[in-house]
Amino acid sequence: MRRSTWLSGPYILWMAIFTIIPLGVVVWFAFTDGAGHFTLDNVLRLGDYLPIFLRSVWMALAAALICLVIGYPAAYYIAGRSPMAQRFLYMLIMLPMCMSFLLRTLAWVALLEDTGIINGFLEALGFTPLHLIRNDGAVILGMVYNYLPYMILPLYTVLLKIDPRLIEAAQDLGCTGAQVFQKVTLPLSVPGIVSGFTMVFVPAISTFYISQKLGSTSSILIGDVIESQFKGAYNFNLGAAMSLGLMVIVFVCTAVMHRFTGDEEVVTL
């Protein structure tokens, strides 16, 4: 079958032109000015945006952590059901991912607004309305909501693969339920935790829509700045430098996370 390697030729060519070269173009734009001359200004200006970078990192980390805490018990529960129930629950988790995330995020605006649905209920029950939107908490909520399935699905895949005999063996050897979890189930689910964490962290750190809709003007993220460079300020060079910075952060963070697991153990959907 050795001769059929040529079949991947068109694909490699395609990816070279539309993946590798564009990244080169990003680097080129990041290190030039509007007239095309070499400059370090764009990269040096990234320092001014350091607080925004840091805020994006911590919000995305918080969202990923909350997703893990919420997602783990749910994935654990689903993995323990009958095959028919598993399939049904898997579908229920996956379905929201197929629907427009823009509209679903807008629905959260309607829920959280000062005159929104939740406050309407609170008022009807005689409580004072709360200020729920336009703060960091609302942005993190939006991230958790949008990317929770990306945490649950890889966790579920990993938990399903754990050999039940290992758990029985641990029980036979005298482990309590909590010990079984701590010594067997949790270590074996690390690959799922790592890939779930990455799959939440990466889109969360680069989002711009969620922060525009649910955040305040003081809680803008890297994604917002990049978007405004391309769609508002038309400073492609600065936008390219910021994209480069974002790429470096994501690369470093995923590399750190993958230190916890072997290369070939990465789980995808």
Binding site: P22, S243, L246
Partner: peptide
């Protein structure tokens, strides 16, 4: 990140 893919293609 998707935004980087989008930006890189837009620049290309």
């Amino acid at each position: 990140p998707e935004i980087v893919t989008g930006v890189s293609l837009a620049l290309l």
